[in-house]
């Protein structure tokens, strides 16, 4: 049985001028338990919208979402979300942010246990010594580490990530990707993950399958047949990697040229 299944999902809404606007058209895909999939595409293709529907923040106007075979409406404790930014509560320290998350799923622990668990997860993301800092005192990369620690600490079966490293500089981004790879291997129970990104390298490095989205639809599915555990330095030079990269790249480019064709050379 699929862990996640989207069936004929459409999303339409009225924009400010009260005109009907379509954000998703007939989106179908499924994710197996323990699978890591990336949704990739250029901005405005509907990838973030798809994720917000998966998280339950938005409801599709048509179609259904199934989780573990049951129809899912609204947010749920089985899903944790990591956003690109501004997801930490600025009035809580790093530790408080994490323990606040734990408290929402596990209400009957003592304060000491919350703190202990929060500290463990902050240590796991390499933030030992930063527990009592407020978000404004942390760099963007560190804030994302806290957000990841919070989501992991809540122990959801499904992790949804919306361009989690999109606002982080290249060096930190690589560090965070490596950290995520390691963390996911360490988990007792394998998580099902859907990540939205526009970074091809990131998608190949992390995922088992890549969904290419364009113009509100899923256009292409690409299997990433690279063995795990993966390490950046081991896979980046390989032929499989180069082929995959080329394949995804061509998808981006062919779509650009199609658009140019459609709109008479306007880019």
């Amino acid at each position: 049985m699929d862990k996640i299944k989207l069936e004929n999902v459409y999303l339409e809404y009225n924009d400010e001028g009260n005109e009907r606007y379509s954000a998703l058209e007939d989106v179908n895909f499924s994710v197996k338990e323990g699978e890591f999939i990336s949704i990739i595409g250029s901005s405005g293709c509907g990838k973030s919208t798809t994720l917000s529907i998966l998280s339950g923040l938005r409801q599709p106007t048509q179609g259904k979402i199934y989780i573990d075979g049951e129809e899912s409406v609204g947010t749920g404790k089985n899903r944790g979300v990591v956003f690109q930014h501004y997801s930490l509560f600025p009035w809580m320290t790093a530790k408080k942010n994490v323990s606040f998350g734990i408290k929402q799923v596990n209400g009957d622990l003592s304060k000491k246990e919350y703190n202990k668990k929060a500290e463990e997860f902050l240590e796991a993301v390499g933030l030992e010594g930063f527990e009592n800092k407020y978000p404004f005192q942390l760099s963007g990369g560190m804030q994302q580490r806290v957000a990841i620690a919070r989501t992991l600490a809540m122990g959801p079966e499904i992790m949804l990530m919306d361009e989690p490293f999109g606002a982080v500089d290249a060096k930190n981004r690589a560090d965070l990707q490596d950290m995520l790879l390691e963390l996911l291997e360490d988990q007792d129970q394998k998580k099902t993950i859907v990540m939205v990104t526009h970074d091809i390298d990131e998608a190949i490095l992390l995922s088992d399958r890549i969904l290419f989205m364009d113009n509100k639809k899923i256009k292409e599915e690409i299997e990433v047949n690279l063995e795990r555990p993966r390490r950046r330095q081991d896979i980046f030079g390989t032929d499989t990697y180069r082929e995959l990269h080329h394949k995804v790249m061509m998808l981006f480019y062919s779509n650009v040229s199609e658009k140019i064709g459609d709109e008479g050379g306007i880019i």
Partner: peptide, 14 residues
């Protein structure tokens, strides 16, 4: 309040 903070709170199921 920033909508992103509210979204974040909602995904935590508060």
């Amino acid at each position: 309040i920033d909508k992103k903070l509210l979204d974040s709170a909602r995904t935590l199921n508060v």
